[in-house]
Design a protein around this nucleic acid. Structure first.
Length: 399
RNA sequence: GCAGAGGUGGCCGAGCGGUUAAUGGCGUCAGACUGUAAAUCUGAUGACGAAAGUCUACGGCGGUUCGAAUCCGUCCCUCUGCACCA
């Protein structure tokens, strides 16, 4: 790092790592400077959706950035979107969501916090519920808020434009969503708002509404979207292509190994702190080794170095060398003969058709011997090891 | 309100009286190969059943028919155009 850099420039540089877009850089520079002079920390906002308390690596990208702000001395302001959750963010798949009770939201928020503070500094975090202000607005307030934005402006938003073009429904309340989120910024007087690039529109509305309310507009930082396990679509819970930050080390490592090679670069830059030059070097070498390094790096962040090494060893043992895993789920079975298909149904909780299919496809072995007849009678014995496909194992235990 | 187009399996999307548990694509799973739970290729993919077969499924309900996702009636929902437009 350039020793001549001022602390502010230094901070700016760290904040923009990983392809972060800053709107605008000059304003952020200003705010950082003012904060340094007055000793007043910046209020950095991040909105959370209370319906999905499982934090994954994609969201962690943003959380890590928020953590960086905290490390620079600023305050994190989390907005639990208990009110907006009733609308459902049109950025996503836009299914109407069930209304959550306050109790459910608080329960979710608790689960959320356990995970959040694996990344964030709790002592510099303030949590808000946007129902506290949005829920109190009366219809006149809503009309006044709605008057601050035009239909044409709202329709600039890509989601709406696309859905209109595809002749898909766009409900009126959905176009209120960006206004709600913008109002949150007004309420907490945010200096900065973080989000994925998919939040660009919403976050910019916040700037607009703050200006309309006589506040200084928030600076917006947009992080690139992390792709999911499929390597194309964004990582999200609803698409089922995510890696949760509290998943078991082995599971996490395995999922990372299943990423398409092409996704590695963005994972390295967004999910690890490895310097650019080293990333280039890793990617120039064998992809499998690079991916193992990636896996170890990420697992270590959430579970520690030791767990990461263990996860890698277990992976190499089970998949590279095809040996059986150290630990496998035990399944209790009462003694007595049963058919191979029935055994599978019990051990792996699958349907009869699926069990037959697995056996028919040669996917099943019992103590290393392939089963090829689903009607074959088996007398289960303690310690028998059943394997289905590459990953699923069960150890039989007689009741 | 009027007119037109639609609502099909996890998703997209064919079918438009029987051979349709329903083409195809995506997804998922498996096998082969390998460099990995990468890539590629191949296959499988409603439930129950040892099997024969039975059941459930094409927005809801009712009807016609030996037989309906396919025809008729009705209701609900979406889209497009027109009308309405303080």
């Amino acid at each position: 790092m350039n020793p001549h850099n001022s602390p502010i420039e230094n901070a700016l540089e760290r904040l923009s790592r990983g392809g972060t877009e800053i709107i605008s850089r000059a304003e952020l520079c200003d705010k950082l400077q003012k904060s340094a002079q007055t000793g007043q920390p910046l209020r950095v906002k991040l909105g959370l959706d209370p319906t999905a308390p499982d934090i994954h690596l994609g969201f962690a990208v943003v959380l890590k950035k928020l953590r960086l702000f905290q490390d620079l001395g600023h305050e994190a302001h989390l907005i639990i979107g208990d009110f907006t959750a009733q609308i459902g963010d049109p950025s996503g798949k836009s299914k109407t969501r069930p209304q959550l009770s306050r109790a459910q939201v608080e329960e979710n928020a608790r689960t959320y916090k356990e995970q959040l503070f694996r990344i964030l500094d709790e002592s510099k975090t303030v949590v808000h519920f946007n129902g506290d202000w949005l829920g109190k607005m009366n219809f006149a307030d809503v009309v006044r808020l709605a008057s601050k934005y035009t239909v044409a402006q709202m329709l600039e938003r890509e989601d709406f434009a696309r859905r209109l073009a595809e002749q898909k429904p766009v409900a009126l309340h959905e176009i209120l969503y960006p206004l709600c989120q913008g109002q949150d910024s007004v309420e907490i007087r945010a200096d900065v708002e973080l989000g994925g690039t998919d939040q660009r529109f919403n976050n910019l509305v916040g700037r607009e509404l703050q200006r309309a309310s006589g506040q200084e507009s928030q600076v917006v930082l947009l992080m690139p979207i992390l792709v999911g396990l499929d390597g194309t679509q964004k990582m999200s819970k609803s698409l089922g292509n995510y890696i949760g930050i509290s998943e078991a080390p082995g599971e996490m490592f395995g999922k990372i190994m299943s990423l398409p090679d092409a996704a590695m670069r963005s994972y390295f830059t967004l999910c690890t702190e490895i310097p650019e030059a080293e990333i280039e070097n890793l990617l120039a070498n064998h992809p499998m080794d690079a991916k193992k390094r990636l896996g170890r790096e990420i697992v270590a962040q959430y579970h520690g170095e030791e767990a990461a090494t263990e996860a890698q060893d277990a992976f190499e043992k089970q998949f590279s060398r095809g040996e059986e895993p150290e630990e496998m789920p035990e399944v209790a079975i009462s003694s007595g003969e049963l058919s191979a298909a029935e055994l599978l149904k019990i051990c792996f909780q699958i349907t009869g058709g699926e069990a037959k299919r697995m056996i028919g496809q040669g996917a099943v072995t019992l103590d290393g011997a392939r089963l090829d007849d689903s009607n074959q009678k088996i007398a289960p014995q303690n310690g028998m090891k059943l394997k289905m496909g590459k990953r699923r194992w069960a150890k039989i235990k007689i009741d």
